[in-house]
């Protein structure tokens, strides 16, 4: 069984900040916009290094999305930054018309996604954003798992022409993927081989899936683990190939089971290879205040929940 070492807990939003800082040096067309959350989004360095390419828009997210769309006309590559809730639900129509339908090269970068935002509670804990964004034609949806991968994803999306939703989070979590990795949009990462069950996880749940695999291994269950950092376009082949071997699957995400990764996987499998599937996701609910760990436990999004889901999926084979 392959093991992954935590190089030290780090927040994925800092990975975004580091990636943006790097882009500032390497790509003069990259510009950044922020709606009064520079510190939270870790955009301070870009602002300091490139004040002429940084736009503080104030608490006005709709205007930010429109400005970003306009900035592409003239060849700029705008990265917008605010919380996931204000990056999607608040500005859905602006993204739909001025960015997606208009084919604009805007990168919508969203921090504090999901329950792990913690104490601020449900007003800020969006669990519907993946669904909102993946439904937009032409939108690429990426949810990296740790600091290193978020940094790599941030750098990679500047090279991709087209609208992108990049989702990351607030808490410090295990940083276990390679430093300076190459990030390939739409390419699933095979983390661990296994025979009994496939676990397809995204974002913060990838590390939980690795932890779950250890617990399953002690029970004599061999789990195959796939890190789906790109939810759209989905690497269907990687999923189909894996379940061809394991015959059952668990999807794991910090998102509502309606509209998330699990539904995308279910669509692929129902069309190409019907397979018993269990969903580790929130159950059509809002979040609430609490620590990230408390919330992930209460809403069934931790490694324990993944272990239980795997056992259930295996029984359904």
């Amino acid at each position: 069984m392959k093991t992954y070492e935590n190089q030290g807990n780090k927040d994925t939003r800092s990975g975004f900040g580091a990636g943006l800082t790097e882009l500032g040096k390497t790509n003069e067309n990259v510009v950044a916009l922020c709606a009064d959350l520079i510190g939270s989004l870790k955009m301070d360095d870009f602002k300091k290094n490139h004040p002429e390419r940084f736009f503080q828009v104030g608490i006005a997210e709709a205007n930010m999305i429109g400005l970003a769309a306009g900035l592409t006309i003239g060849g700029k590559i705008p990265f917008t930054g605010t919380f996931a809730n204000f990056s999607t639900g608040r500005v859905y129509d602006q993204i739909r018309q001025s960015v997606a339908y208009s084919d604009k090269n805007v990168k919508i970068c969203a921090s504090h996604a999901g329950l792990t935002l913690g104490e601020d509670g449900a007003t800020h804990q969006i669990l519907e954003d993946i669904g909102l964004m993946k439904m937009l034609p032409g939108m690429t949806v990426i949810n990296p798992c740790d600091y290193n991968q978020t940094k790599a994803a941030t750098i990679a999306i500047a090279e991709h022409h087209g609208p992108v939703y990049l989702r990351f989070g607030r808490p410090k979590v295990a940083n276990f993927t390679p430093e300076n990795q190459k990030f390939e949009i739409g390419k699933a990462l095979h983390l661990q081989d296994g025979n009994d069950v496939t676990i397809v996880a995204t974002g913060h749940l990838v590390w939980e899936a690795l932890e779950a695999a250890k617990a399953l291994n002690e029970k004599g269950i061999s789990a195959e683990i796939i890190n789906i950092h790109t939810i759209k376009p989905l690497d269907a082949k990687a999923i189909i190939d894996s379940v061809s071997k394991t015959k059952c699957i668990v999807t794991a995400e910090e998102h509502n089971h309606l509209g998330g990764l699990g539904e995308s996987v279910a669509r692929v499998l129902s069309q190409h290879k019907p397979t018993p599937q269990e969903f580790v996701a929130t159950n059509d609910t809002f979040g609430e205040s609490g620590t990230p760990a408390q919330l992930m436990e209460k809403y069934g999004l931790n490694s324990d929940a993944i272990v239980k889901a795997c056992e259930k999926a295996i029984k359904r084979k």
Binding site: G70, L71, D93, R96
Partner: peptide, 25 residues
């Protein structure tokens, strides 16, 4: 045509973004 419009109220922001791009360029 450089932007889709129809859902109202979005064009001012887009025009301003394009104006900022002109300054940068």
């Amino acid at each position: 045509v450089r932007i889709a419009s129809g859902s109202l109220g979005q064009g001012m922001s887009v025009a301003l973004g394009a104006a900022q791009a002109k300054k940068l360029n």
